[in-house]
Design a protein around this nucleic acid. Structure first.
Lengths: 193, 193, 193, 193
DNA sequence: CATGAATGAGCGTTCATTCAT
DNA sequence: AATGAATGAACGCTCATTCAT
């Protein structure tokens, strides 16, 4: 308990180091000893918390992806209209990138590998799709294929985040949140005729 | 020309095999001997066309990414309005995914690794950004940060393509092209009044 | 003495656990933590009794091998004739396998690794060889090379025990003791005429 | 073809090196790089011939064990009497140890690990047991449990070989072949009464 | 030119051993 | 004395790359 050591400290140090290196270099370009070194632990210690490297990656992905979905759901639930639900979610994702840079980039990077086999209860795509389905039922959102609508909503946010990781957008993503949300809403809103 | 072999045939067989395996399994999970086997050439022959595996990946990415940019530019140029330029580009990308499934998935998959260091003259992002900048100047497109606008345009297409690779959207992407283009235009059009 | 713990209890729990696992899985396939777990002690405690894993194996082998030699000697000593000495020793070894299954298998398994460097005072091979030398001197046993004679005596018993460990002989080995002893005696007895 | 290299040379160099090191140090105490070094090949080359270390050990064991059984069978078949069959087999095994020292020691050493799971058609134990069963049927060999009889025959030979590996018997084992065979025969022959 | 057997650096992983508590 | 989390050397194995044929 002295000198800044407490139970579970190693695990979170490993998680943090892994997340950073995975985001910065990619999973495959990050050897286990490199994670251990950055975490300041021995290689063997990593295997006390994870059965193998793949489990580390999978748990890091799955747990955070599910957590993100949960938070996204909690963010949209209290909002009265679909428009405000979407604005809240867009802002939340933007802030998520600003706040949890390593984690967000890791989730973005690994989606192509992990999402094919991801079988978690909660996931952000379904949250958005459900909000949109509800919005269509309520007549606030123009009726169209659910996944196409979801692409219209998630696409701009993910793309802006991607530009951020390439350095093509600078400064906090939250600054662009309202602009993005506004554009998205125009793309999906049911036009009065 | 006899015996079914001509200059450059081997190279294109290698490229095709690599593209398919990279798209299907990922670059890191694809050993060079596996590419050679699928291409029907010896491992050593692959090294006659590419100095190493990384160069194969880089050239495959860079050349096709630049080619895609060029075609995108050629597609939008003749169109008279920004709206039609964007519709043409969206349709082109959708058809690109339907037509060149392996290549498109490879470009999507590798963007996060390659785009950080990509230094090619032509690239799709700049094409779209330029079209939008022009549209803003012409007063057709609402004025906002160029990259945010670009995200609003590219995001939905890329996201729909991504959903296609996860199997969350089925059937040819071109079927959704008009819907997507329509939504995108609503997101960026300059509102009258 | 209360709470079921007394001096040396831990050591014997460790020994027993190690013996069982070594016999069942082999020495190299038995991690130290697995021994500790089966013994119900911490890994560190094991190192209070033995300097390292090799010493555990060596002491387990050496002490029990020497003890076996001692008991074998005590068994044959009171017997009046070589024939009865051998019958007694054969029966004793058979019963030893039936009674101390783990220990016996361990000694059998490790002999090839340990016997090369074994330097203990007492050992079963010498006991048998001495009994036979004595028998030759007394004219009861046919004269031949001492170690060849020893092989004729020990071989059948060890081989039967080996078959038992492979499951090629079933039931208690003691059941076969008389048969084996009878055969052995015929093999070494000095023929009259 | 020049300078002493021909197809299959590497494999046999690997086999020889492995056999020697396994016999000398034991399988578990022999790292793959050590085998490669002694064979004068790179580590990777070993994996061109064997899928993994265990397969190397298993194939080395299984193939040679089966071959030994085959040769043993071919040795005993032409002999007219059980007595001469056994004498021939004993001599053959003794010469086998003298001739193929590394291989013989390896088979002896690994029997405890491999024989439990060995499922090959041919094996020396069954050959001997069958010869004995036949001898009992013919009235040449005293009737008793087949495996006990087999232990009486194989035991002395294996034990003598074991003594040879410990240095307790010196010189070629073939020198002792007749003595051993004579003893074995006395142990199992059907006594006229 | 094309071949593919051979190479060996570097990976993921295990486990005997230590030592702060 | 007893504990068990932490250690890191050493293992088995892979695969990008080379080069004699």
């Amino acid at each position: 308990m002295q000198q800044g050591s407490f139970k579970g400290e190693l695990k979170s140090r490993i998680d943090e180091a892994a997340l950073h290196l995975f985001a910065e270099r990619g999973v495959d370009a990050t050897p286990v000893p490199m994670i251990a070194e950055r975490a300041g632990v021995a290689v063997g210690s990593l295997y006390r918390y994870y059965a193998n490297k793949n489990e580390l990656v999978a748990r890091l992905y799955t747990e955070n992806y599910a957590r993100l979905a949960g938070e996204l759901d909690r963010i949209q639930a209290p909002e009265p209209s679909t428009r405000r639900k979407i604005a809240a979610m867009v802002r939340f994702i933007c802030e998520f990138f600003d706040r949890e840079w390593d984690l967000a980039r890791f989730l973005l990077l690994e989606q192509h590998v992990r999402l094919k086999t991801y079988r978690g209860a909660a996931n952000p795509v379904d949250i958005v799709r459900d909000v949109l389905a509800d919005g269509m039922r309520r007549g606030e959102v123009r009726s169209r294929d659910g996944m196409v609508a979801t692409a219209l909503v998630m696409g701009p946010v993910i793309q802006a985040a991607t530009f951020l990781t390439y350095g093509r957008i600078s400064g906090p993503l939250s600054n662009a949140a309202d602009e993005i949300a506004h554009g998205i809403w125009a793309a999906i809103v049911r036009q009065r005729d």
